[in-house]
Nucleic acid binder design. Structure first.
Length: 757
DNA sequence: ACCATAGTGCTTTTT
DNA sequence: GCACTATGGT
């Protein structure tokens, strides 16, 4: 089992029982080491119940289990191998009482959470200009990820204090409705262990080895949860690569790795630096690039497979021509025998995929775009899930509002407003408030309640897939989508949902015959209560958790071999024979927004490092001098990352332009704005672009001038700051005294010119 | 209840 | 450029 490993991998796998940090470079066999370590531990006599393995994605967890069962003939079901969220969910279900949760608590995904916050803001008449739901959501999640409850947050300004209040209100709403968001799963599980000593001691004693994948992506709360769970008995085996930390914006804290090395591993670090993926030129380029980062633990990838081909670089005048060139080159690669799905086109932001798709489409090259909408996030699926949630818990107001009038059944906004008032008055759910409603609205709502009750009654008798079919039919969704011109796809997805439920029920062993019996899972009784809870969890409740925690595949169409299109973030962990990294322009990559963030540039550089190390045999770097973005043509200079790659590893296929002028001066002096695109705007004023600022414009019969005073029916009076475009494209930036600065289309906006300004 | 129009925003997003 | 939302009119 371990004979085929290299010495460092062997050392990692056979680490004695102590905290260990594995610095695993890209393509160094990280997953292999993790799974072999688990198998090795069990071979040494460790019980599978004493082992926990934590990942970030369901995919990684599945792969770990698959590989593990290939190494050892064991039944992996019931093992504590899963995502942070999955394992926390498990803990909370087992000990819902101690965690202060209802047994059937439901999990809100990000979209559900946002809807819940929108509802909260509306109910409390919060000014959504000052407190946009997205910002409130970000605030709440960020605080939870720091492990903070409202009372523990230090708020020094009124705005933050208000946000803390909203956090408090939101939390109360969640408690009332029996729902838990993603961050809450982690925080609750952490608090559960923190506040219940017997439970904590039980799990600390039980798990003697805890393995963590992608450790560089952990946030402070996850770090605290892990170390609390480990106590002073368990060994933490953390595997990660600080150079591939690209999720700071989601709360991942790269310093967790340093802290872990210092406080736990205490220098017990194994470096996996031999790379089995990429050829020498690619690795050397990547090493050189990442050496520009100061904040690293240090590591240098090497290979014994030779230098291979230099990294190719291409510069084109526009994004369209860049895309065209990429597609032509892909054709050549395919002709040379590259498999289509071994060719990946990567980009920094999703908006870039459009041009690429367009060119691929016209060339009839099959392609797959990753990162679109996922199965359980589709509108029709969410509708059915909302019905199912109401069946499981009719007090879930978010679900209620989603489907109470979908398909339409004569329950309008006014009725719901009134219903909401009653709910507030009696401090109850919308469902419970229905009896207070009178008249036609009362009748229609009564019918809806009857529908839910009747389905809930069926839920007791019907197997899950049959129940779902029943819901699709009785809710009227089937009829609705049948009558919809574009409903065919949606109907297909609904059928797919029934199939998913069938598979789920089979895999979970929750078929009718088994339901009610203790699962085959050899879970030792934690306490009598815990055990009872697990077996009593209905297939419906289990399926709903599954739907929230596993959003499903996010690739567009499965099917034949196709060229792979995705963001660099989405490409992490994957590898391809040929990789195109597109849009290597200042402002785009590194992204202009990142330059204003703390350590933002280093994060962008790590992103570039991830991108480079995806390629096995061939890597292309492409850039465009101009690019359509936000409806305007933008001009940019080449990315500084290109200049950080040594010439020895590059092969320019188009002439290399002179280095950008006085790059450092721009960066130092003006930060984000000045460097790439502003410089470009100056070129634009020299006559290249159509969207140059102007001092006067005639649209319709009106003559607009900068500084001119104008009046708008909604925004009131204001002053024109800038003018751009012409004809239909004509736009003005106007500063309104009351409403603030807006950008308006002059052709459409109802503006009146007034005196002064 | 439904559609048209206007206005807004817009990096990445494992759960 | 485009997709999403809010709102107002029919």
């Amino acid at each position: 089992m371990i004979d085929s490993l290299n010495p460092q991998q062997q050392q990692a796998v056979t680490q004695p029982a102590q905290h260990t940090l594995i610095l695993a470079g890209a393509g160094s066999g990280k997953t292999r080491v993790l799974t072999t370590r688990m198998a090795w531990l069990m071979q040494q006599g460790l019980s599978p119940y004493a082992l926990m393995a934590v990942t970030f994605t369901n995919k990684a967890a599945r792969e770990m289990l698959t590989r593990l069962s290939a190494l050892l003939p064991i039944d992996t079901r019931g093992m504590w191998v899963g995502t942070f969220h999955g394992l926390c969910n498990r803990l909370l279900r087992l000990h819902h009482q101690d965690a202060g949760l209802v047994q059937s608590f439901q999990i809100l995904d990000s979209a559900d959470q946002l809807a819940a916050i929108r509802r909260l803001l509306k109910a409390n008449n919060i000014d959504d200009e000052k407190y946009p739901a997205r910002d409130v959501q970000r605030f709440i999640n960020a605080e939870k990820e720091k492990g903070l409850r409202p009372h523990a947050i230090e708020a020094y300004d009124p705005h933050t204090r208000r946000l803390v209040e909203l956090y408090e209100l939101y939390q109360a709403q969640c408690e009332r409705e029996g729902v838990v968001d993603f961050a809450e799963l982690l925080l609750r599980a952490y608090e559960l262990l923190l506040h219940h000593a017997p439970l904590r001691q039980h799990y600390q004693q039980r798990f003697s080895h805890i393995l963590i994948d992608e450790f560089q992506d952990t946030n402070p709360l996850q770090y605290a949860w892990l170390t609390l769970l480990a106590g002073d008995q368990a060994c933490l085996f953390a595997v990660g690569d600080d150079d591939q930390s690209i999720y700071a914006f989601r709360g991942a804290d790269i310093s967790n790795m340093k802290c872990f090395e210092r406080d736990y591993a205490k220098g017990n670090v194994v470096r996996l630096e031999q790379n089995y993926r990429s050829s020498g030129h690619i690795l050397d380029a990547a090493n050189a690039l990442i050496s520009h980062n100061a904040d690293r633990l240090g590591k240098k990838l090497w290979t014994d497979s030779g230098q291979g081909e230099a990294v190719r670089v291409v510069e084109k005048p526009s994004d369209a021509l860049e895309a065209q060139w990429v597609v032509e080159e892909i054709k050549a690669l395919l002709k040379d025998g590259y498999a289509p799905d071994q060719v990946a086109v990567l980009y920094r932001s999703n908006a870039q995929s459009r041009v690429l798709e367009h060119q691929l489409f016209s060339s009839a090259i099959p392609y797959k775009v990753y990162g679109g909408q996922r199965f359980f996030e589709r509108q029709e699926i969410k509708h059915v899930l909302a019905y199912l949630r109401l069946i499981d818990n009719p007090n879930a107001d978010t679900s209620w509002l989603r489907v109470v009038n979908f398909p339409t059944r004569g329950i309008g906004a006014r009725s719901l407003e009134q219903l909401g008032d009653y709910a507030r008055q009696y401090n109850c759910s919308l469902y419970r408030a229905v009896p207070y409603m009178t008249g036609r609205a009362g009748t229609n709502l009564g019918k809806f309640v009857a529908l839910i009750n009747q389905l809930a009654a069926q839920a007791q008798m019907l197997p899950l897939p049959d129940l779902i079919e029943q819901v699709i039919h009785d809710s009227g969704l089937l009829e609705h989508y049948k009558n919809d011109r574009e409903g065919a796809d949606r109907l297909e997805n609904l059928q797919e949902l029934v199939n998913a439920a069938t598979v789920f029920v089979m895999e979970e062993g929750l078929t009718e015959e088994v339901a009610g019996r203790i699962p085959v899972s050899p879970e030792p009784a934690v306490d009598e209560n815990g055990m009872a809870v697990l077996s009593a969890m209905s297939p419906l409740a289990a399926f709903l958790s599954h739907a929230s925690l596993e959003a499903g595949d996010n690739q567009a169409q499965a099917g034949q071999a196709a060229v792979q299109l995705m963001t660099i973030h989405a490409a992490k962990g994957l590898e391809f024979d040929a990789v195109f990294i597109t849009g290597l322009e200042e402002g785009l990559f590194p992204h202009e927004n990142s330059l204003a963030e703390l350590n933002g540039l280093e994060e962008e550089r790590r992103l570039m490092y991830v991108a480079l190390t995806r390629g096995r045999r061939r890597v292309y770097l492409t850039l465009a001098q101009s690019r359509m973005l936000h409806g305007k043509t933008r001009y940019a200079t080449r990315s500084r990352f290109l200049d950080e790659l040594p010439d020895a590893h590059l092969k320019w296929l188009t002439p290399r332009q002179a280095a950008p002028v006085a790059q450092s001066a721009w960066v130092g002096g003006f930060g984000r704005e000045a460097h790439g695109w502003n410089q470009a705007r100056q070129r634009a004023t020299a006559g290249m672009a159509s969207t140059v600022a102007k001092s006067g414009l005639i649209v319709g019969d009106q003559h607009f001038r900068v500084g001119q005073g104008v009046a708008h029916p909604k925004f009131g009076e204001g002053t024109i700051l800038t003018l751009s475009g012409s004809g239909n494209e004509a736009q003005a930036q106007i500063h309104f005294r009351e409403a603030g600065t807006k950008t308006l289309a002059l052709g459409v906006a109802k503006l009146t010119i007034i005196a002064g300004g």
